[in-house]
Design a protein around this nucleic acid. Structure first.
Lengths: 139, 139
DNA sequence: TAAAATCCCATTGACGCCCAATTTTGCCCA
DNA sequence: TGGGCAAAATTGGGCGTCAATGGGATTTTA
């Protein structure tokens, strides 16, 4: 699901994702840096709360939990779509995800991500390779 | 079972495969990139759900689970056939399977695959050759 | 006041839905 | 066994709708 960034730095988010958002009655999008990938995650407030709860369950002194908390709270901004369902690709998004003129959307249940296209395929290829090696070893 | 892609980028799914789908009462097709072959696999939504359940068993923040999720969610889309049982060959399918104007259908039990014709024969040849070598060694 | 963000409108293009023409298939009968 | 026929499957294309795109105008903000 790859889209072009237009001359004004906008991408229209595919209607598939928008319908999910409208169904959940989500106006403000929380846009934050993904925990494990060089990608931008976009979700409604309630997903955010879920992440927070999950983090709270862990050891509050653990580096990981602290980093995640930092990413969620410090590495995120609220944004909204324009009248045509487009999202402005800010430097915040651009820099972290390495996005230039193309964005691929990845739905992940109740939230979705923005990827620089080749970064996504690289990650997927890597994962497939790992799976192959695993299955070979287990033979 | 090779079919031509028409001028509008559609292929009619052979009735053999469609009857399987109708028997299982499948409307929405989960179309995803195969894990090991350069082919597109097509199944019902329950396959995606199975994948998701598998992922849910692990820690949702672990790198492994996230990678699998990426493979599943980023490598699959939902589609449906038109009234005449045709499937639109999107860029998503085209690019991953290397399909241009011909598609070979391969049934695999409860799902089926789309291949670029020559890619399939190449893969088959390779597999045959490997088997030959094996049997020679074991003689 | 310039630059950027927001709003608004026009055009394009993709897709769903429909119908018609043609081909293939399965089956019956001579 | 070979036609002939009807039903099913495939193919081609028209058309309307809506998402996607591009760009202008207006407001906001630094």
């Amino acid at each position: 699901m790859t889209k072009k960034v237009d001359a004004k730095g906008r991408v229209s988010v595919p209607s598939v994702f928008r319908t999910v958002l409208t169904r959940l009655d989500i106006q403000d999008l929380y846009v934050f840096q993904d925990f494990v990938f060089p990608a931008i995650s976009i979700a409604g407030p309630e997903v955010l709360e879920r992440f927070e709860r999950h983090i709270d369950q862990g050891d509050p002194f653990s580096p990981d939990a602290n980093k995640m908390s930092l990413l969620i709270h410090g590495g995120g901004v609220f944004m909204k779509l324009d009248g045509e369902g487009r999202l402005a690709i800010s430097d915040f998004i651009r820099d972290f995800a390495g996005i230039t003129d193309q964005v691929t959307f990845v739905g992940r249940g109740d939230y979705f991500q923005l990827w620089e296209p080749s970064a996504l395929t690289r990650m997927q290829d890597e994962t497939r390779r790992e799976r192959m090696e695993q299955s070979v070893r287990s033979t």
